[in-house]
């Protein structure tokens, strides 16, 4: 079985910051906006190098989304930055009308998504954002897994013409995908080959899925781990090809099971090839304060939870 190791941990938001800085040097149309969270979003390098292309909006996310939409009229490619909660739920109608329905080329870049925001608690830990964004016609939804992939995704979305939601996080997590990787929107990356169970994971859960696959391998269970960074458009072919081998699937995400990756996968299964599915996701609940590791454990979003669900889904075959 292919195994993954890491030598360094970094936050995915820093991958965004690095990607944005690179875009600042390579794409003169890229502009950045922030609602008073420059440090948290790691936008400083872009701002230092391109002060005229940065717009500090203040604590006014609705205005930020509208200004971003307006900047596209004139050929700019705006990247907005704030926490995931304030990037989606707070400004849903602004995104819906001024960006999505208007077909504007805005990149909504959202940090501190999910439970791993940690101690700030449920007011800031959005677990509904993937659902909100994937329901908008034309919106691309991306949730990369580590620093390198987040940087690659940031570069890739500048080349895509249309609205994108890019979701990343706060904690330091292992870097296990290659530096300088090519990022293809809507194409999964198969991490391990397996025959007993498919594990489709997104964001921080990809590393947990790889850890789970190692433990499962030691117990004689062969898991195929798929890194699905793009939730919309969904790589249906890859999912179907994998379950044709394994006959069951676990989906894993740092999000509510309602509206998340898992439900998108369920639809593909229902329409094409119904097989047993288990969900690693939060169970229609808000989060709470705690360390990221404590929260991921309490809400069942780590490798232990994936191992349990993998065994459960295999038993249902």
């Amino acid at each position: 079985m292919k195994t993954y190791t890491y030598t360094e941990k970094k936050d995915t938001r820093s991958g965004f910051g690095a990607g944005l800085a690179e875009l600042g040097r390579t794409n003169p149309n890229v502009v950045a906006l922030c609602a008073d969270l420059v440090g948290s979003l790691k936008m400083n390098q872009f701002i230092d190098e391109n002060p005229e292309r940065f717009f500090q909006i203040g604590i006014a996310e609705a205005n930020m989304m509208g200004i971003a939409a307006g900047l596209t009229v004139g050929g700019k490619i705006p990247f907005t930055g704030t926490f995931a909660n304030f990037s989606t739920g707070r400004v849903y109608d602004q995104i819906r009308q001024s960006i999505a329905y208007s077909g504007k080329n805005v990149k909504i870049c959202a940090s501190h998504a999910g439970l791993t925001l940690g101690e700030d608690g449920a007011t800031h830990q959005i677990l509904e954002d993937i659902g909100l964004m994937k329901m908008l016609p034309g919106m691309v939804v991306i949730n990369p897994c580590d620093y390198n992939q987040t940087k690659a995704a940031t570069l890739a979305i500048a080349e895509h013409n249309g609205p994108v939601y890019l979701r990343f996080g706060r904690p330091s997590v292992p870097i296990f995908t290659p530096e300088g990787q090519k990022f293809e929107i809507g194409k999964v990356i198969k991490m391990t080959e397996g025959s007993d169970v498919t594990i489709v994971a997104t964001g921080h859960l990809v590393w947990e899925a790889l850890e789970a696959s190692k433990a499962l391998f030691e117990e004689g269970i062969s898991a195929e781990v798929i890194n699905i960074h793009t939730i919309k458009p969904l790589d249906e072919e890859a999912i179907l090809a994998s379950i044709a081998k394994t006959g069951c699937i676990v989906t894993a995400e740092e999000h509510n099971y309602l509206g998340g990756l898992g439900e998108s996968v369920s639809r593909v299964l229902a329409l094409n090839s119904p097989v047993p599915q288990e969900f690693v996701a939060t169970n229609d609940t808000f989060g709470e304060s705690g360390t990221p590791a404590q929260l991921m454990d309490k809400y069942g979003l780590n490798s232990d939870a994936i191992i349990k669900k993998a065994k459960a889904v295999i038993a249902r075959k």
């Binding site: 509208g66 939409a69 602004q94 009308q97």
Partner: peptide, 20 residues
């Protein structure tokens, strides 16, 4: 150049276009 109807959004958009 923009959808409108849900009220209150147009001035932000106009500002963005002005900054562009």
């Amino acid at each position: 150049r923009i959808a409108s109807g849900s009220l209150g959004q147009g001035m932000s958009v106009a500002i963005g276009a002005a900054q562009a």
